[in-house]
Each structure stands twice: as structure tokens, then as C-alpha cells.
Simulated scan of single mutants.
Amino acid sequence: MKRLSSVAAAVGVMVLGLGGLTACGGSDSGGTDSGAPAAPSSPAGQPAVKLATADVSGLGKVVVDGNGRTVYVFDKDTAGKSNCAGDCLAKWPPVAAGDGAPQLEGIDASLVSTVTRSDGTKQLAINGLPLYLFASDSQAGQATGQAVGGIWWAVGADGKKITTQPSGSGNGNGY
């Protein structure tokens, strides 16, 4: 019994020691990180996120995630703050920041930052605006979320929203 309690005590010290180490690594301002590549603190085990650019029919070169899915910004967001919650998130999942700085291809790192959502999770942003995927975009190269409700927009390689209206689309309320 004495040996078992010694082992338990040693494990507890190791766990506390490791917790102390992770707590000391980096700072978190609780707001947005502007002007520098994102270095988010997310739950352990989430790989670094990839953002790249790809040509999407009718829109030109847009920002996509690591799977080639178009990313969007929401007109009701403000720089540094997401206003998509509840039912909105079911159709427009946030682009989670992951661990470490995102891998960027074709995107200026100074445009990419993170925002802290109201639930404490980190979300990637471009020019301070949070990024989202559209649940109905099921494969790379689609941009069916473009101009939905007149408030959702794909993002160009320059970090600016693309306001090109898709032809013949029936865009509903956006969420």
C-alpha cells in the first residue's frame, strides 16, 4: 500500500509539473492578435491549420482551407469579434485556429490572425474578420455560400471579401 501511494504521489507531481510547463508557454491577450501570424492556444492535439489560395469558378483566386474548401467572412462580424452563434454555426462552422501558426500558401502572413470566440475557442481571421466554412460546400472548389443572404462572402488572396454575386442563385437569409 505504501508503494502504491508513492507511485500515485510521483504521478501527481509529474502531472502538476507538466501542467506548470504548459501554462508558462506564451501569452493570450484574450482578444485578437493583429498583424502577426496566428499562434493560437487550442486544445492539444489539433494540428496547425492550413490556408491557401485556389481558383474558384466565377470568383477567381480565393482563400481555401487545407482541404480546398472555400472560406468566407460574415458581414455581421466586426474586426476581432464573431457574431455567428447558435443556428448560424450549424451552417457556418468557424475555421478553428488549431495548434501553432497556420501553414500559409499564397497568403500574406500579416493578414492572418486569430479571434477568441465567446466560448473561448480560437478562430482564424483575415484582416481581423473571422473565417468560416459553408456546410453545403461538400468538396474543394465549391463556393455555394457566396453572397448567401447578401452577407456571406468568399475571401480573395488579398484578404478582402469578394462581392461578386453568383448568377442564378437563390440566396436565403444566410443562416
Rank of each mutant, 00 (worst) to 15 (best):
residue 131 L to N: 04
residue 84 C to Y: 07
residue 45 G to A: 15
residue 127 N to Y: 04
residue 56 V to R: 01
residue 33 D to L: 09
residue 144 T to L: 10
residue 108 D to Y: 10
residue 142 Q to Y: 02
residue 23 A to C: 07
residue 45 G to I: 12
residue 133 L to G: 10
residue 145 G to E: 05
residue 124 L to F: 14
residue 117 R to A: 04
residue 141 G to K: 12
residue 18 L to V: 10
residue 48 A to D: 09
residue 2 K to D: 04
residue 5 S to F: 15
residue 105 E to Q: 15
residue 79 A to E: 07
residue 41 S to T: 14
residue 127 N to C: 06
residue 22 T to F: 15
residue 25 G to H: 15
residue 17 G to W: 01
residue 2 K to L: 08
residue 140 A to Q: 09
residue 149 G to M: 06
residue 110 S to G: 11
residue 65 D to L: 11
residue 162 I to G: 06
residue 100 G to K: 04
residue 19 G to L: 09
residue 92 W to E: 00
residue 31 G to Q: 12
residue 11 V to D: 02
residue 90 A to E: 13
residue 61 K to S: 10
residue 13 V to C: 07
residue 93 P to L: 08
residue 174 G to I: 01
residue 150 G to W: 09
residue 172 G to K: 09
residue 52 A to I: 02
residue 43 P to N: 09
residue 12 G to C: 13
residue 81 K to C: 01
residue 117 R to H: 02
residue 160 K to I: 01
residue 44 A to S: 14
residue 85 A to V: 07
residue 147 A to D: 15
residue 98 G to Y: 06
residue 2 K to E: 10
residue 102 P to K: 06
residue 167 S to R: 12
residue 49 V to C: 05
residue 136 S to N: 15
residue 55 D to S: 15
residue 157 A to K: 01
residue 64 V to D: 12
residue 60 G to D: 13
residue 21 L to F: 08
residue 125 A to V: 10
residue 101 A to W: 11
residue 41 S to K: 12
residue 95 V to P: 00
residue 71 V to Q: 08
residue 50 K to P: 02
residue 135 A to Y: 10
residue 4 L to T: 11
residue 174 G to L: 01
residue 38 A to Y: 02
residue 4 L to C: 05
residue 66 G to K: 03
residue 162 I to K: 02
residue 109 A to E: 15
residue 11 V to T: 08
residue 153 W to A: 07
residue 134 F to N: 09
residue 91 K to N: 13
residue 61 K to N: 10
residue 145 G to C: 03
residue 92 W to N: 01
residue 137 D to V: 07
residue 138 S to M: 09
residue 161 K to C: 05
residue 82 S to P: 02
residue 122 K to H: 01
residue 20 G to D: 06
residue 2 K to P: 00
residue 155 V to K: 01
residue 120 G to I: 09
residue 58 G to L: 04
residue 40 P to G: 12
residue 31 G to L: 12
residue 126 I to M: 10
residue 108 D to L: 13
residue 46 Q to F: 09
residue 103 Q to I: 14
residue 48 A to Q: 09
residue 13 V to A: 14
residue 56 V to E: 02
residue 159 G to A: 03
residue 173 N to H: 11
residue 7 V to E: 06
residue 68 G to D: 06
residue 153 W to S: 04
residue 71 V to L: 02
residue 156 G to Q: 08
residue 85 A to R: 04
residue 13 V to G: 09
residue 119 D to F: 03
residue 68 G to A: 05
residue 88 C to K: 08
residue 72 Y to C: 05
residue 15 V to H: 00
residue 59 L to A: 05
residue 147 A to K: 08
residue 54 A to N: 02
residue 95 V to W: 07
residue 162 I to M: 01
residue 32 T to Y: 00
residue 158 D to I: 04
residue 34 S to C: 04
residue 100 G to S: 06
residue 172 G to W: 00
residue 115 V to Q: 04
residue 155 V to R: 00
residue 75 D to Y: 06
residue 136 S to C: 02
residue 150 G to E: 10
residue 104 L to W: 14
